[in-house]
Every structure is written in C-alpha cells, then in structure tokens.
C-alpha cells in the first residue's frame, strides 16, 4: 500500500491558464515517478495534455524530466509544472 502525502502543486504560465489554478494541495503517492506524477495531474486537469512532450516538473525546486526513475515525496513537498522557459 502506497502512502499518500499532501503536496503543493504549482502551475506556471500556460499550465496556470489551462488549469485555472496557480497552486493547489493534492494528495500524491509517496513513492512514484515523474511520469506517474504527470499522469495523476492529467487526471486532475485533462487540459494539461496540451503541454504533453514540452513539460518538465520541478520537485523541491529541482528540475525532473518526465521519466520512470523513482521519486520520493514527503508531506508538504512542492511540485511545480514547468512549461518551456522563456526568460530573458
């Protein structure tokens, strides 16, 4: 049985427009992968599919490309949806 934690999910730029949220607290499984995390966010907000193939996540302020590598979440962690960057 996977433990679930309350994680703050932040949405920026186009992802904020697509979801209508800038941040929300979501119960997410403690042991997961970035791919599974993205799939769960897609379930919550199907409109995020528009960002498929261009998005990365940031977990505890570290970029994580979508993939299968194990990801451990803790209570109160911060996950951000990061559309393609365009600063400068």
């Amino acid at each position: 049985i996977n433990t679930y934690y309350l994680v703050t999910v932040l949405y920026f730029a186009k992802s904020a427009e697509l979801t209508g949220h800038r941040s929300e607290v979501v119960p997410l499984p403690a042991a997961t992968s970035s791919c599974q995390l993205w799939a769960l966010l897609l379930e919550l907000h199907p409109s995020l599919a528009a960002l498929q193939d261009q998005v990365v996540l940031a977990v505890r302020q570290q970029y994580v490309a979508l993939g299968d590598q194990a990801l451990l979440l803790a209570d109160g962690d911060e996950v951000a949806v990061v559309p393609p960057l365009s600063g400068g």
């Binding site: 951000a80 960057l85 600063g87 400068g88």
Partner: peptide, 14 residues
C-alpha cells in the same frame, strides 16, 4: 550568463 539564464531560470514571458 544570459544563455544560462534563458536555459535554466524558471521565468516565462507572455
């Protein structure tokens, strides 16, 4: 520095 900023700083322009 400007290249690295564009590649890695989480900033978005609309």
């Amino acid at each position: 520095c400007i290249n690295a900023l564009k590649a890695s700083a989480p900033i978005w322009k609309k």
